[in-house]
């Protein structure tokens, strides 16, 4: 899957600046500790995998990063600024986009409209022009349609642009959701199990899109994935969570040989 040159099991390290850092973050729901004292960072331009067994706290970590949950403890620094409490739409303004573990598309809308919705923040024609659908409103609509068509071409979903997404098969829904996130031209893209429930071929396609997107648009990616083959192929660095605690952090090669990780995955009692 990986372009030639990348050694087996890992990509050449990307030595970018730190885009996001998570320091000592803890989050609990009532008595359940979903994340406890986790620290790691994401560098500009890298693909950073977050892995761990079910219930490890991976999704919760993403929810903290984009502001759905506020950690009880710890600090998150994005683009050099420590952020206080932040709402999801602030994260969107800041340049963080996201796909969901269970597809969260706008089911009643066409694929095209879903992806156009991803451009919302970049559009600003006022109510008056929107009412007339003329002048700035129409210009803006066409301009963003061009951008969206580029994404549609990139993801090869030309055939389904007019289909209401509720009627698409699961694999295509995941692809449209990726398109919608891409339309935001994010600096940091959080992907929560983008390949769950896909067959091998679909997984290969999706991996291709993630790599290309990272190469061509320079999008930084945080990727949650259960398929180890995919993780090893795609990611620059991997952080491993188990029971809300970080148990390992390093390159795919380092992770593969890590005893704690092997134990966590084999279910050794601790």
């Amino acid at each position: 899957m990986r372009a030639p040159g990348g050694s087996q099991g890992g990509r050449e390290a990307v030595a970018g600046d730190i885009l996001l850092s998570v320091e000592d973050v803890s989050l609990s729901f009532g008595g359940v500790k979903a994340v406890s004292g986790v620290s790691f960072d994401i560098r500009k331009g890298e693909i950073r995998a977050i892995i761990g067994p079910n219930g490890a706290g991976k999704t919760s970590m993403l929810n903290v990063i984009n502001g759905f949950y506020h950690p009880q403890q710890g600090r998150i620094t994005f683009k050099g600024e420590a952020r206080p409490r932040m709402r999801p739409h602030d994260a969107a303004h800041g340049g963080i986009a996201r796909t969901f573990q269970n597809v969260a598309l706008f089911r009643g809308m066409s694929a095209l409209d879903n992806i156009m919705a991803g451009r919302t923040l970049k559009m600003n024609a006022n109510f008056f022009w929107q009412m007339l659908r003329y002048g700035p409103a129409m210009r803006e609509e066409v301009e963003h349609r061009h951008k969206v068509e580029e994404i549609i071409d990139f993801l090869k979903i030309q055939e389904i642009r007019r289909t209401p997404v509720g009627r698409l098969p699961y694999g295509l829904q995941k692809r449209v959701e990726l398109g919608r996130a891409l339309a935001m031209e994010p600096e940091l893209l959080l992907l929560d199990e983008p390949m769950a429930g896909m067959n091998l071929e679909e997984k290969e396609d999706m991996s291709r899109y993630i790599l290309d997107m990272n190469d061509y648009f320079g999008t930084t990616v945080a990727l949650i994935e259960h398929d180890m083959g995919v993780v090893m192929d795609l990611s620059d660095r991997v952080v491993v969570l188990d029971h809300g605690i970080k148990i390992a952090d390093g390159t795919p090669d380092e992770i593969k040989g890590n005893q704690a990780v092997i134990d966590a995955y084999l279910g050794v009692a601790h």
């Binding site: 759905f68 739409h89 706008f106 089911r107 919302t120 559009m123 929107q130 659908r133």
Partner: peptide, 29 residues
């Protein structure tokens, strides 16, 4: 006018809120 509004950005944001408000917030809505 209603048709114009619903075919543009405003219509999309409204339908986004209807279909999946969490994801809508994430688009910056």
């Amino acid at each position: 006018i209603a048709s114009n509004l619903m075919h543009g950005r405003i219509g999309r944001t409204w339908m986004a809120v209807r279909d999946m408000d969490i994801a809508a917030e994430l688009m910056g809505i």
